[in-house]
Simulated scan of single mutants.
Amino acid sequence: MVDANALIADLSRQVQADDIESGKITLTKIKIWMLEIPSGQGAPVESITLAANALELGVLLSVADDDLDAFARNMSQLKPYYAALSSCNAATTERKCHVLGLNLMHLLVDNRLSEFHAELELLSEDEAGTPYVSFPITLERQLMVGSYDEVLDAGSNVPDPSYSFFMENLLETVRDSIADCVEVSYKSMKLADAVKMMKFESTEELQEYLQDKREDWIVEGDRLTFQPPPMGSKAVDIPSMKLMAQTLSYATELERIV
């Protein structure tokens, strides 16, 4: 007979020790045991709680393994157990807010904002107020108003190290947005200013970014020079003077008619 409590204790130790391969084996054993749990209202609350605890650890394990597919699978399997615990007014699990916050981070990084807000609707006021959940909520608001500096600074203030995986992906997206703005706003810029603006730790990090993402930016001494954007893709290509002349012409003709 499977001792689910012992397996979950093993999985907890493996997650804490970043023993990913052993954790995967243990999680598989637990999921096989979970198949024996009765579905519907007849399921024992203790078994439901154990299953939820195991899947929460599975979520943390997938983050440690940088495996977004496994993360999504574990979250999908976990949600029915949360619903079952809620329907029978059982006590919430210890890691619930932590896991819910990670799921919000996942949705934010994927830019699945409609799902992000749908998940917020399911949260209680107490859950939304925890650091785990309030962190992605604040990030989403900062992104919506374009407060990129605050988003970049948030990378050093995550509520738990497990959030760093999603923050790295989010910071990459934010840096790309800043780079898009910079190259249409400036003809050139000091390297030191670009490092500061994009929150890199050093000029070397900026140059690595340029090699990966911005090969058309030119480094000349201590300055960056931005290539003109391709025709038809940026605001600079809009024939503003021609449009202005046409508008004035239309206005003159309209005045004559009136």
Rank of each mutant, 00 (worst) to 15 (best):
P161R: 02
F71K: 06
L68T: 13
A52N: 08
D19S: 14
S134D: 00
A52R: 12
D10I: 13
Y148K: 05
Y81L: 00
I48L: 15
L120P: 05
Q246I: 08
I20P: 02
G23W: 13
L61N: 06
D18K: 11
N169M: 14
I30R: 02
A84M: 15
K234H: 15
T173Q: 15
Q41P: 05
A43G: 02
V2K: 11
S22K: 13
W217E: 06
S147W: 13
V2A: 11
Y186I: 01
L7P: 05
V2D: 04
G155C: 01
M197H: 01
M75I: 13
A118T: 08
A83T: 11
T225D: 07
A192R: 06
S12L: 07
M75D: 09
S76F: 11
E255H: 09
D65M: 02
L55V: 07
M231W: 09
L78Y: 12
P229Q: 06
A52L: 11
V63A: 12
G232E: 00
A179E: 03
V184N: 01
N53F: 06
A43C: 01
L170Q: 00
A154F: 00
K24L: 08
S147F: 15
D65G: 06
V99P: 14
K31C: 05
R141T: 12
R141C: 12
D10T: 13
